[in-house]
Amino acid sequence: MKFLRLLLLFLLLNFLALGVGVVLMNSGPTSNWYLSLNKAPWTPESWVFGTAWTLIMIFYSVYMTKLSLSFKSINKAIIKLYGLQWFMNVIWNYLFFNQHLEVLALADIVLLWLLVGYFTFNYLRVVKTYTVFIIPYLIWLTIATSLNLYIVLNN
């Protein structure tokens, strides 16, 4: 029961991040600015982004639930790192799509990738096989970082 309650909390928080990100991106991927960019040849179709993020946030919620329950009491470091991850994920949308600050967005997503990588490898012994639930996040951030970098270098 405790697992389910915490899972629902992380699902709520993670989908809130997606929702806030969508609001902050304004017209984002449909804007003239974005449509006119020279994008990487491996840029997925637009529907892939929503599907990927939905699945990633479900899996990440399972991961964070297991990680949080792996300690006898609330681990303040994990809460702070999770909050930082939440903020960095959300703010990328604002930096990239709303403000067109591609270089600053790139710095943000690289730091986010490092943070998710830290979660992945630092807590591997703690969550063991549950690490599989954070791997899609790390893979998707790798792809997203390459897309952001391509735009920085080719526009």
Rank of each mutant, 00 (worst) to 15 (best):
P41T: 02
G28K: 06
W47R: 06
I143F: 14
N32R: 14
K128L: 10
L106I: 04
G83R: 03
N75Y: 01
Y82G: 01
L8I: 09
N154K: 13
N89Y: 08
N26M: 08
W33I: 12
L69H: 00
Q85W: 05
T30D: 15
M64G: 02
V132R: 07
W140M: 08
I58W: 08
K39F: 03
N89M: 07
G83W: 02
W92T: 10
N98S: 13
L55N: 14
N89Q: 12
L147P: 08
N32K: 10
M25C: 09
A144E: 04
L18Y: 09
F133H: 02
A77K: 04
K72M: 00
E102W: 04
V126I: 15
E45K: 11
T131L: 03
V48C: 12
A107Y: 12
E102D: 10
V126W: 03
L6F: 07
Y123A: 01
L95E: 08
L7G: 11
I143M: 12
F119S: 03
K76A: 09
A107D: 01
V132N: 00
L84C: 06
K128H: 11
I91N: 07
V152A: 13
N148H: 07
S73V: 05
L11D: 04
T30H: 09
I143R: 03
F97P: 09
F87Q: 02
S61F: 11
Q99F: 09
L4N: 10
G50Q: 13
W33Q: 07
Y82C: 04
I139V: 10
I109Y: 04
T51S: 14
Y130A: 08
W140T: 01
M25K: 14
I143V: 15
L37G: 06
V62H: 03
L37S: 06
Q85P: 06
Y94D: 07
F59H: 04
N154W: 10
N155A: 10
G28S: 11
L106G: 12
Y130M: 06
F59G: 00
I109Q: 00
G50F: 12
T65A: 10
K72I: 03
L153P: 10
I78N: 00
N122P: 02
M88P: 06
I56G: 02
L4Y: 14
F71T: 05
I143C: 01
T145F: 05
G19C: 02
T65L: 08
Q85M: 06
L67A: 01
P136T: 07
I109F: 07
F15G: 00
L16S: 15
G19E: 04
I134Y: 00
K66H: 09
V62L: 15
I74A: 00
A107T: 04
I58K: 09
N154S: 13
F59E: 05
I139D: 01
L55S: 13
I58V: 15
V62C: 12
N93C: 15
W92R: 02
E45V: 13
T131I: 07
H100T: 04
Y118H: 15
L124D: 09
W53C: 02
I58T: 09
V22C: 01
A17N: 04
N148S: 14
I56Q: 08
N155P: 12
V48F: 15
L153I: 09
I74K: 01
N75L: 03
F71A: 06
F87V: 14
L11M: 14
L24K: 07
Y123L: 08
L13D: 05
L101E: 10
L11V: 01
T120S: 13
L138D: 00
W86D: 02
A105H: 04
F15Q: 03
